[in-house]
Design a protein around this nucleic acid. Structure first.
Lengths: 225, 225
DNA sequence: CCTCCACCACCAGGATCTTCACCGCGGCGC
DNA sequence: GCGCCGCGGTGAAGATCCTGGTGGTGGAGG
């Protein structure tokens, strides 16, 4: 899930961003309304978390502008007080939900899931499987043929990305964006390096390789025939 | 299904009773603890819905009295506050589940079904166990390999949280929220400090470590392989 | 055979975790 | 009230571990 957090208060922002990141989401951050609007207009987010009061352009204006631009990404407002008046105003502007500060992170998460129309925890697949490779997202444990494999955070993220797109070709650019949050080409072989490390761990004792190189295109995780 | 609702607030009571009746259940009602106890003692109910705060005899006392009288009908507490402290208190008294107000009727229904379906013997576990580590919630006693370990209140809370989620990764954010009731990032190493203290007590005489660091993710309480 | 791309061993910088000493606050006994 | 004591939070120092960059090697494809 890709989330944009627009919040000027560094403390709140940090807390939210950290929590969302820990929960395995990709998070971008903006500290004022103008920047938020700029980022949000590309529409690549699943959901927005927007502070009601912001420098340059406040939350209300931001969402109104977004809607006017035809962006329908659901937005949740963070607000000091969530009185009825505020709520109406916010909903008219095109917000989808409200959360008063201070709030419990768990509640934020639940509401975001609801907004993004994701089934809450229960239905969320907690285990990814490709051939004899398993990844348990809750336990953060990966096994191949029942054998435990431990991965570094980045390796884990990389493998998760690949497993969620098993059978598809995944380009280097996709990986840089999805796993590294790089929106540019670092001109180094970070990706290759990590693919290499991952292979070394996955195919340890002569197991058939799962990660296939698509020369000139990218990589593909697929069960061997 | 036969259900007893003990609730003094007429509005909430009406809401719950109507919903349950419409769902095809037989519902009795009491408006204070004394009356509730009187009705519940005949044990003819499948499940009880009990407000935490009641005139005459509060929910805690009611359930305690019932259990003392040998009635094991599962009980669900409705409560304004559902903090960890309250929960522990409630569990000690013999409640089986908690639901904070305000609540969705669907959730109440789901929880009641779960409670009623539960084999009566296995009431909410009063003892948590992970490998050779045991925590008795009633006695507030923790032992490792039979050896008593005493913990400070906060350490106890932390360990309880971890044990209830044994095998899963628990993020720092989850801990701050669930154990400290912090809804923000304190930007200090409170969590780490207490994890450290807990480890020191748990793994005293060279016992294999139970708390595993998931670098970049959080911690995980798990039996060693 | 040549070129380009992919692979991987190695390293240093830095992020993250661990531990420790210290201190404040509140409870308790006097 | 007063002072002691113990719990629990703070912050910094040090250990540990990750990770991205570099560059040489090897193999695929033309």
């Amino acid at each position: 899930m890709k989330i944009l957090v627009v919040e000027d208060d560094a403390e709140t922002a940090g807390y939210v961003v950290r929590g969302l990141t820990e929960a395995g989401h990709t998070v971008d951050q903006a500290t004022d309304g103008r920047e938020g609007l700029f980022l949000a207009t590309d529409g690549a987010y699943d959901v927005l978390v927007v502070d009601r009061m912001l420098p340059k352009l406040d939350g209300l204006g931001l969402v109104r502008a977004l809607r006017a631009a035809g962006v329908r990404t659901p937005a949740l407002f963070l607000t000091a007080r969530a009185g009825v008046g505020d709520r109406v105003e916010g909903l008219e502007a095109g917000a989808d939900d409200y959360l008063g500060k201070p709030f419990a992170f768990a509640e934020l998460m639940a509401r975001l899931n609801a907004l993004a129309r994701r089934p809450p925890l229960s239905a969320e697949p907690t285990v990814l499987r490709v051939a004899d490779l398993e990844m348990d997202l809750l336990k953060r444990v990966v096994t191949r043929a029942g054998q435990r494999i431990d991965l570094q955070p980045r390796e884990f993220r990389l493998l998760e990305y690949l497993m969620r797109r098993a059978g598809q070709v995944v380009t280097r650019t996709m990986l840089l964006e999805g796993v590294w949050d790089f929106h540019f080409d670092p001109k180094t072989s970070v990706v290759e390096t990590h693919i290499s490390r991952l292979r070394a761990k996955l195919d340890r004792d002569g197991a058939p390789p799962l990660i296939h190189t698509m020369r000139g295109a990218g990589y593909c995780l697929r069960a061997p025939d």
